[in-house]
Computed example of a mutant assay.
Amino acid sequence: MTNKTAWVLGATGLVGTQLVKELSNSKIYSGIHLLTRSEMKITDAKCIGHVVDFNNLSKYSDLFKVSDVFICLGTTIKKAKSKEAFRKVDYDYVIEAAKMAKTANVEK
């Protein structure tokens, strides 16, 4: 196992859930930070849950001290209920997270 750490945005969705399983089974990561809107049941000792307000993601810049960032965020227009809300999840949050990762000098 290495000392690499990962950060996963969108860990509760279809893709994010599968990614977390893969990362947990990997010997590459010693820690996996899961940023979610609500509390989630975590059974893997490598995983650390963080409930965040995605509208104020910059408040959590200290959480970006990781090796790699994975963004698995997405919604449907049906769930979002408006084009504006859909864009916020599928675009605005993703761009903000990417900027924060770049500022924190995340490797990948």
Score class of each variant (00 low, 15 high):
89 V>F: 06
6 A>Y: 07
104 A>S: 14
32 I>L: 11
45 A>F: 12
51 V>I: 12
39 E>P: 10
6 A>R: 07
76 T>K: 08
41 K>L: 15
91 Y>H: 10
29 Y>S: 06
19 L>V: 00
24 S>A: 12
53 D>K: 03
12 T>F: 03
77 I>C: 05
44 D>P: 02
108 K>W: 11
99 K>G: 08
51 V>D: 06
103 T>R: 15
73 L>T: 03
66 V>H: 02
74 G>L: 04
38 S>V: 09
62 D>Y: 15
38 S>N: 14
51 V>W: 09
29 Y>R: 06
37 R>D: 04
22 E>I: 09
72 C>K: 01
61 S>R: 06
78 K>Q: 11
25 N>S: 09
34 L>I: 08
65 K>V: 14
77 I>E: 00
86 F>N: 12
89 V>Y: 05
48 I>P: 02
66 V>Y: 02
60 Y>E: 13
17 T>S: 15
55 N>F: 01
39 E>H: 14
80 A>G: 02
85 A>Q: 09
22 E>M: 02
75 T>W: 02
52 V>D: 01
68 D>R: 04
56 N>P: 07
54 F>W: 01
14 L>V: 11
90 D>A: 00
54 F>V: 00
62 D>R: 14
1 M>V: 12
29 Y>A: 05
49 G>L: 14
46 K>Y: 03
72 C>A: 13
36 T>A: 02
82 S>Q: 08
101 A>M: 04
17 T>H: 15
71 I>F: 00
24 S>I: 10
59 K>I: 05
101 A>T: 00
21 K>Q: 12
30 S>K: 14
28 I>S: 02
46 K>A: 09
53 D>S: 04
34 L>H: 10
66 V>L: 04
86 F>T: 12
86 F>K: 10
16 G>H: 07
19 L>M: 08
48 I>Y: 15
85 A>D: 12
18 Q>T: 10
22 E>H: 01
20 V>W: 08
94 V>M: 00
9 L>V: 01
103 T>A: 15
34 L>R: 09
103 T>S: 14
40 M>V: 15
89 V>S: 05
53 D>E: 08
72 C>V: 03
7 W>N: 05
93 Y>F: 07
108 K>Y: 12
56 N>Q: 14
5 T>Y: 01
106 V>R: 10
58 S>H: 09
68 D>H: 13
39 E>Q: 13
85 A>N: 12
59 K>G: 04
96 E>P: 06
33 H>C: 00
25 N>P: 02
10 G>F: 01
88 K>V: 08
8 V>H: 01
100 M>D: 03
25 N>E: 10
17 T>E: 14
102 K>G: 02
44 D>M: 00
12 T>W: 10
91 Y>C: 04
5 T>Q: 11
95 I>V: 15
105 N>V: 09
18 Q>N: 10
31 G>K: 14
59 K>V: 02
28 I>M: 03
58 S>T: 10
51 V>S: 06
78 K>E: 07
91 Y>F: 13
89 V>N: 06
39 E>Y: 11
102 K>A: 11
44 D>G: 00
55 N>A: 07
36 T>S: 09
101 A>G: 06
2 T>G: 12
72 C>D: 01
92 D>W: 08
67 S>G: 01
86 F>H: 06
7 W>T: 06
99 K>Y: 09
